[in-house]
Design a protein around this nucleic acid. Structure first.
Lengths: 156, 156
DNA sequence: CCGAGTCAGTTGCGTTTAGCAACTGACTGC
DNA sequence: GCAGTCAGTTGCTAAACGCAACTGACTCGG
């Protein structure tokens, strides 16, 4: 997928360049849920086969997903998240919460719970110094160590 | 923008249907950073004018962004996040962190800090009962109250 | 008051990407 | 040996994107 407008030097742009197309995050959502096989993914998502082939290949190249054989004769593979793929979990959680908040009139269609105790989970941005949650209006952005060049002033 | 494959009954799909195209999240990133005017957005993103017009209109329709006049003669508007738009902050933070983790070799290009104390922020999924952070492998998903119908078994 | 400049679009056109349907191929199981 | 499943591939059409040129409402400098 398309070389996104890759604003090098922005991690959001870098992430979207990797997984920011119409299907990839939905494929990953299914992988998190345990849907791992081509045909299952296809019918669950309603994606066409050629695109699914394409997106999975790309995810494998990016090492977000790996192919694991689950039978020989005929050889068939399933797709599993790598550590890099599993690290997308917070992003999917955040996207889900926004959908829950603004589009789920009767409450969330899916709850995320702690496996050991079954309690519904929280997600928060917080300040390790102040030990409190931080809302969007209290987040500032600053150039970090990985910034190459021209630090323009316009912060949040 | 395109009517995404809207798997109704999945908040991730609902969110992606709203903001999951090639440009929208980058536009929102800029709005969070304080870039608010058409021409600024255009040149910062390198997006073509027609698409920017289109995306902004859609964001206004969805009430993620609103148009505020900043001068008359000629009348000019800037685009600002609504509360709904501001609620996307955690999602952008999560996408940014993944990019930082996997693509920022020299450290993050941008740091998010607490406005009052300047401390770099954390984001975590946590269990309110156990009072501890919860990694991807300990998250289970369950049908929630907003689920309409056929609860298929395949959980995470 | 005329021409250059700015900002915010709109229009038109060619290229890319996506979506659909039909086909292949390696099997299993009856 | 024929139907069925799974995982693709190929070919064609439709939708989305990207670029460049044009419009329009102004301001400002001379």
């Amino acid at each position: 997928m398309p070389d996104q407008p890759v604003d090098e030097g922005c991690s959001i742009a870098a992430t979207l360049a990797a997984v920011g197309d119409r299907w990839t995050l939905l494929i990953l959502r299914d992988l998190f849920r345990g849907v791992r096989r081509f045909e299952q993914l296809r019918s669950d998502l309603g994606i066409s086969r050629n695109l699914l082939t394409d997106r999975l290949q790309r995810l494998v190249e990016l090492e977000i997903v790996h192919r694991v054989p689950y039978q020989d004769r005929p050889i068939r593979h399933e797709y599993r998240l790598t550590a890099k793929g599993a690290d997308l979990s917070p992003a999917l959680v955040a996207l889900m919460r926004w959908g829950d908040l603004w589009y789920a009139v009767d409450g969330p269609p899916t709850l995320l719970v702690h496996d050991t105790c079954g309690t519904p989970l929280d997600q928060a941005v917080s300040c390790p110094a102040c030990h409190e949650p931080v809302g969007a209006q209290h987040i500032r952005s600053r150039p970090g160590p990985g910034r190459m060049t021209e630090t323009t002033g316009a912060d949040r």
